[in-house]
């Protein structure tokens, strides 16, 4: 069985792309970086939008990145059921692009929070049928954030 192929999208100002590429290499996945000006993802099983400060976070976080040439390819990949992970800044880019509902707001307590955070697994089976995480093993991840409060249209909320 060939290893999963992962595209890690890099914008000017992205900083955790190397983390994702290194981890993918550690677990034997076939990951490659994709510069934001590319138009095609190629043949991949999943796409990662890493964290950082795409385009300096200017205007609004993710506002400029969501018009990058690579974004239409990511949107059509997601629309066809492809898994897309947005981490930190990448999550905000997905919100700005309208691929996720809502927007992220600055923490109202004026603190930069850094915690371990338990997650609830909603859909354990991956697209390829391989369970990456089982509900028996709730993942606990390190979370560092300046913006975490979310704000969505009344019909849909994201956490």
């Amino acid at each position: 069985m060939s290893p999963p192929r992962i595209a890690v999208v890099v914008f000017p100002g992205t900083w955790s792309d190397r983390d994702f590429l290194d981890v993918a290499q550690l677990v034997g996945w076939d990951a490659r970086a994709i510069w934001h000006t590319e138009l095609e993802l190629g043949s991949v099983d999943a796409v990662v939008l890493p964290g950082g400060f795409a385009h300096g976070d200017y205007l609004r976080t993710g506002a400029i990145a969501c018009f990058s040439p690579i974004m239409p390819a990511i949107e059509s990949f997601a629309a066809s059921g492809g898994p897309v992970l947005g981490s930190c800044n990448g999550f905000q880019v997905l919100c700005e692009a309208g691929m996720l509902p809502g927007a992220l707001l600055r923490n109202d307590h004026l603190e930069f929070r850094c915690d371990w955070q338990w997650l609830r697994v909603e859909a354990p089976a991956s697209r390829t049928g391989r369970a990456a995480i089982t509900p028996m093993e709730p993942p606990c991840l390190s979370s560092r954030r300046r913006s975490a409060s979310s704000c969505a249209t009344p019909r849909r909320m994201v956490a």
């Binding site: 205007l59 609004r60 506002a63 018009f67 700005e96 927007a103």
Partner: peptide
């Protein structure tokens, strides 16, 4: 299209 995000602005 760009300058304001109508969700929050």
């Amino acid at each position: 299209r760009l300058l304001a995000n109508p969700v929050m602005e």
